[in-house]
Amino acid sequence: MKTDPKTFIADFITSLTDDLVNTDEDPAVIIDRYHTPDVVQYADGNRIDRDKLIAHTRPVRKNRPEGRMEVHEAVRDGDRLAARYTLHVRQRGKELAIDVHFFGSFAPDGRMREAHLLTRTR
């Protein structure tokens, strides 16, 4: 992670979402591009491993959400990154604002290794 942490997390989430929504590439290939094979995420207390991440791509692709990300703050310490951001999403005629508190670690190549996310929809 050589870039500013705000830019890094914004680019990471935006690129991952763009690849999932705007390509027909195999979801497993996309997930592997952005995550280590042993990735584990905890989103609002729910454990999500690689297989569950891949399964999550189906509804994302079906709904084809549009959105933007507003990073309020982000700090990095070595391979660890903490960020607070808002996802502004439009899908199926609804507009949502989702506040996210993110704590994660990344491999030297920039792939996510672990993440803890707390979210709140406004």
Rank of each mutant, 00 (worst) to 15 (best):
I48C: 03
P27W: 01
F103A: 07
T14F: 06
D19M: 05
P37Y: 02
N46F: 14
H101S: 12
D11C: 00
I13C: 09
S15L: 04
N22Y: 09
R33S: 03
R33Q: 03
H56Q: 09
R120C: 08
I31V: 09
R84G: 07
D77N: 14
T121R: 14
D99F: 11
E114G: 03
E95K: 11
L81M: 11
R61K: 04
A55M: 03
D51I: 02
A82Y: 12
H101I: 11
R76Y: 13
R113G: 10
R58F: 01
V40E: 13
H35S: 02
R111G: 03
E70H: 14
F102K: 04
V29P: 08
R58H: 08
D24T: 05
I9K: 08
R47E: 06
L16V: 04
E25Q: 11
T36I: 03
D24Y: 04
I31Q: 05
T14M: 03
G67Y: 03
A83C: 07
R50Y: 02
M112F: 08
L81F: 14
H56W: 15
P27R: 02
R80G: 05
D32N: 04
Q91W: 10
F12G: 01
I98W: 14
T57H: 07
P65W: 01
L81P: 15
N46W: 11
R122D: 12
F12P: 05
Y42L: 04
D26V: 00
R68V: 02
L117S: 10
L118D: 13
T36F: 04
L117Q: 11
L81Y: 13
V71M: 02
T7A: 07
V21D: 07
V89K: 05
V75S: 12
I13Y: 13
V89E: 09
M112T: 06
P108Q: 01
G45R: 02
T36D: 08
E95V: 07
A115R: 09
Q91P: 07
K62W: 03
D79T: 12
P5Y: 01
N46G: 04
G45T: 04
L81G: 13
F106A: 03
R76S: 08
S105K: 12
Q41R: 10
D18F: 04
R47T: 06
P5T: 00
